[in-house]
Each structure stands twice: as C-alpha cells, then as structure tokens.
Design a protein around this nucleic acid. Structure first.
Lengths: 332, 332
DNA sequence: CTGTTAGCGCCTTCAG
DNA sequence: CTGAAGGCGCTAACAG
C-alpha cells in the first residue's frame, strides 16, 4: 500500500538547494539564512518529507532509539514505569523498544543482545534477573544504561532505586506494632534483587521488633497473582500459625488474599496481609490492600531522564533512592 | 562505555572471505558450501559479531521492526494484548515499538507519523480514536497494517475484532433475565469504536428484552477507574432509579463499583454491575465482577500473525471476530 | 559456489 | 552561509 518515500534529494530539488542544506534545515543546525531555511522547510512540508531515522542513525552512528527491558509489561508496576519512561523519551524525540523477558534470564540476555543490533544508544533494565557479571557484561556494550532496582555499578552506568529493604522493614515493624508476631514472607523470585532486598528488610524488621527469624515462614514465589496464591498454600502447610504475611508485590498480595480466602481464613482478623508497590488495583480488592507505596511514575521518569542525561542530553543529576511509605487500608 | 562494533568486514577478514559471503552466511541464504558457511559463522561467533539491523534495513529497504499503537499500556487489556502480539513478533525475529496515545487523537496521529520515520513495515493500531478518513490516510503509508476493534477496511489493511456489540447485547439480556429493567450504560469515550458498538449492543439488548431506550441512562466516560467512578456519580444524579449498570470495560466497572459504594448502594442487591473484557483483576475485586469475556491474548496474537502474513510471512488467514461470553460472578 | 560493483538516505568533513 | 565528496554497514544485482 505504500509508495516510494520522499528523500532529501527530492526536497533539495524542490527547494533548489543542496541536500546538505536540507539536512541542516531539518536538524535545526546553525549557519543557514533564515530565508533558505524557510524555503526548505516549506518544500519538505509540501512534499510530506519525513527523514529516515534509519538512514540518519546509520550515517551519524547515533540512533534516537532507546530500549527498556522489563520482566513483564502485564504487571501494572512495570507498565506504569514503562509508560512514564516512554513519555519522557517522547518529549525528547526518542522512540523506545519495550521488551519483555517473562522473568527468564535467558530471554533477558537475548533481549539485551537483540537491542545491540538496533544500534541503540541507551537501555534501561528494570528488575534484572541476571547475575551481576552477566548483566554488566551485556549492558557494557551500550553507550549508556540505567538499572532500576539493582545494586550494581559500573562506568557510565546509572541506577535508580526504591529502598525495598527499608520498605519491607517498615512493613514488618508496622505489623509487629499491631501485635502480630508470627509474620510470614512471600518473597518473590530469589534471582530478583528486589526479593533479596525484601528478605533483608524482613529480617531487619523482625530484629527491630525483637522477633526471632524463622526460615520456615519465608516462601519464594513466581511474582504473579497465581504465584502468590500457590506460595501461600505452601506456606500455610509448613507454618500453620502465621498471623500475618508480607508479600513481594501487590499482585502477589492479591494471590495471597485469594489463597487465604480459599483456606477459610479471614483477613485481617485471622491473618493480616500487606503488599508492596501500591498499584491501582491494591485499593480496589476486598479487603483493600495495605501496602508499601513507591512512586512508580517517578521511578520511570527518573530512569529515563538519567539515561538521556548519560547520553549527553541534559545534566546528569542524582536521583536519590525512594523511601517507600506504608499505606494502611483494610487488610491489616 | 561502548567500543567500536564489529562489522561484516571484520568477520570477512577473519574468515578470509568477501563480505558478501558473510552476508549470505548470516542470512542463511542458499549457495554456500557448508564448509565456508561454517567457517564464517565461527568467525562471527568468535568476534561477537551482531549484524546492524539499521544498516540492514537501509540496504534492503525493509526493516524488521513493527509498531503497535494503543491508547494506554497501563490498561491491562492493552498490556496483555500488546504482550501477546510482541511474543509472536519475537518468534519471527521482529522488534516492535509500542506507542501510547493517551487516548488523544492528536498524539495518535503523531505516533503513527513518527513510525514512518522508523522505516517500519507494518503497524497494528488498537482501538483507534481517529476518524476513519484520517486513520486510513495515516495508515496507508505502511506496507501493511492491522486494525484491532475498528470497523474500516482498505487495501492491504487487515482487521481483528471482538464483537462488542453482541457482547453488550448479551450482557443486557442477561441483566434483563434476572429481572433488572432500569439498566444504565457507562459507555466510554464516544470517539472509540468500541463505545459506539457497546451503545448499539445496549440498544439491541434492550429491544430484545422489550425495554424502551432512555438516553438519560447512558453516560460517556474516560476509560479509567476514576473515569468510571465519575461517570457513575453523574449517572446517579440524572437517573436515580437504576437497578443495574453495564460498563465500557472492567477498569470502568471497578470505578462504578467504587462510586456505588461511596453512594451507599449495595452491589448486587441495589444495583448489579457488569464489566467488559475480563482482565485479571475483574475476579479479584469485591464483589467479584461479572463481565463479558474476550480472549485478549488471542486477539493480540491474531493481530500480529495477520500483520506478519500481510507482510509476506505466512498465509493470510481469516480471523473471525471473537464472540464474547458473559461470565457471572458476584456483582450481578 | 564466491566476489565485485553500486548504492540505500543521510550526516560528516572539508572546501568554497 | 552553502556545496561537494565520502562513507556509515549492509544487501542487490550482476559477474566470474
């Protein structure tokens, strides 16, 4: 259905200038009489000229496309983050590839790899499931990169974080303050930094409340609703006496709620539940989920702003990690 | 942080062949002794060569990247659809740009436009908010395109649909069968084809149940949780006697639920509510949402398969529109 | 079976 | 202020 696209040459001919002049006009470069510039722009407009980003990227060796790699765009946390990030990118005239890894390290590596072929200048990796060495190696081929929620640094490598450890500790301390002592943790996938942080925060909170740590109260899980439900069933089997549960994220917490209901347990009477992130649905389930809130859009916007800055667009500022806040609703 | 990338020339030198041979080997083209092919592939592997998709796109005048344009990736319906579509694309070695339009026709046009510059071959437009003429014009510049949930056709233009009108009619008839007669509709954004289809289905259902149509029971809305809540408040103000509501989608339905709760109305006792789509959260809210289910992943996969087929990869099959099914839960 | 010659559409470098 | 040459990394079309 398409017909031949219009190129610089066409515009140059129409405006009776050289292609160089067209290029300069299109890129708003200095050194052009405003008269010629206007003539060129008009010709371009008239012909419906759209510069080929592909050719531009090849010739200038710097594309204007970026990448975001995330475990699962179907998870509202990642969707909201990615949207905020792409909004920032768009206002800088960049396009972005969003790639899902399905929580699979091999796919993650493949995704990063495939981005190399795109002549991409920068990439944001959210919640990487790769071991440090592999991640750093994969990411080092880009001009710039930003890691979200991942503790590892490198040259030209930015990072943006939520203090999940602090958040988890706060949640545990809150639970303890309401008299809960037998607190379980549905921890998420242990390959995720976020899971390790929450486990650490869980122990911090326990210690701070004078409650001994008991490994049988911790259960890893796939970070989905179903994963949360399943982990809860298993947790209930090995630790029957729990009076509360902290969940890896809100999706998992919803799964916890479901499993508890199936088991005939009442929330929060029998067991209190607290999630993490505060996605929009957290407030809508019954009982409304107490949770540890992070500012997800800001996280995404910060990540992209940093990436752009590392790529030379704007000042490289410091983005202090977010301190999550406990939000109390009905589930605790 | 990046160092110079390895090109065909490097591989050619290392394998002691011409760059053409490298190209042929990398693209698995016929006409190469398996011996040279092996040698080239090994050299490429050893050097960590990754072909530049950009250069390839420019030289061959057909990129391997596609686009998906959707109103809001933060809406689970679109997120799930896009994920399914990108999964299909990935298994064909394509990358995809996902662009949000924020429900804004102007942004939608800009998004489609910006895709032109990417030398993109095909695009999927989901739930376009553009008038037919503009949409067709914008989309006609691509080699192939697929419209999801949009009634308009053109040469080389595919489409994949859910029979929203039938779904809405089914919902109304179900409601009527349970004795509800004063049925409201929170209709969504009227610029969306989906909204018009649901209004038509609403009237069909009313007619089929012998209930007269009453315009004051229909309220348009922004298709978000908040939009649904707000529309419901307005609807309640002008039609106080409603005994049930059909919502544009599940997000809107959740908003309806919230507004009803605020108004002190009990669901389903005072008012029954039924959503549309059956996103994962529909079953998790309280009361669990009855809804009109569509197979969202299939919709996305079909759209991408069709797009690929239109682009010459595989047979162009027919994707019959989906007939949605009413799922009864607690809200009716 | 393999190599050579031309570009793809644009930007960079250097001349005018 | 403007233009002419050259090349980005790859593939198409021919040769050999």
């Amino acid at each position: 259905m398409a017909n031949r696209r219009c190129t610089v040459d066409d515009v140059a001919k129409a405006a009776r200038v050289s292609i160089m002049t067209v290029s300069r006009a299109m890129n708003a470069m200095p050194g052009l009489s405003s008269e010629t510039r206007k003539r060129v722009l008009e010709a371009a407009e008239r012909l419906g000229y759209r510069p080929s980003r592909v050719a531009r990227a090849l010739a200038s060796r710097r594309s204007s496309t970026l990448g975001i790699i995330l475990p699962d765009m179907t998870n509202p946390f990642f969707a909201i983050l990615a949207k905020a990030a792409t909004d920032v990118a768009r206002s800088s005239g960049k396009s972005v590839f969003i790639m899902n890894t399905d929580e699979d390290p091999a796919l993650e590596l493949a995704a990063i790899d495939s981005l190399h072929g795109e002549e991409i200048v920068g990439v944001i990796v959210v919640g990487s499931r790769l071991p440090d060495r592999k991640l750093l190696e994969a990411v080092s081929a880009f001009e710039s990169a930003v890691l979200v929620n991942r503790d590892c640094a490198g040259p030209g490598l930015g990072s943006v974080n939520v203090l999940d450890r602090v958040g988890a500790a706060k949640a545990i301390e809150y639970l303890a303050s309401t008299g809960r002592r037998r607190i379980g943790l549905v921890a998420g996938p242990v390959v995720a930094t976020g899971a390790r942080r929450r486990i650490a925060g869980y122990r911090d909170g326990l210690a701070g409340s004078g409650i001994p740590f008991d490994g049988s109260r911790v259960q890893r899980c796939v970070p989905t609703i179903e994963g949360g439900a399943e982990a809860t069933r298993r947790l209930l089997a090995k630790a029957r006496d729990l009076d509360s549960i902290l969940a890896y994220n809100d999706l998992v917490a919803i799964g916890v709620l479901r499993a508890l209901e199936e088991a005939g347990l009442s929330v929060p009477r029998d067991i209190a539940v607290i999630g993490t992130d505060d996605v929009p649905y957290a407030a809508m389930v019954k009982p409304a989920l107490s949770t540890v809130r992070a500012d997800i859009p800001r996280l995404g916007a910060d990540a992209m702003t940093l990436l752009l800055a590392l790529g030379g667009e704007g000042e490289v500022a410091d983005y202090p990690p977010q301190v999550p806040q406990v939000v109390i609703r009905e589930s605790t």
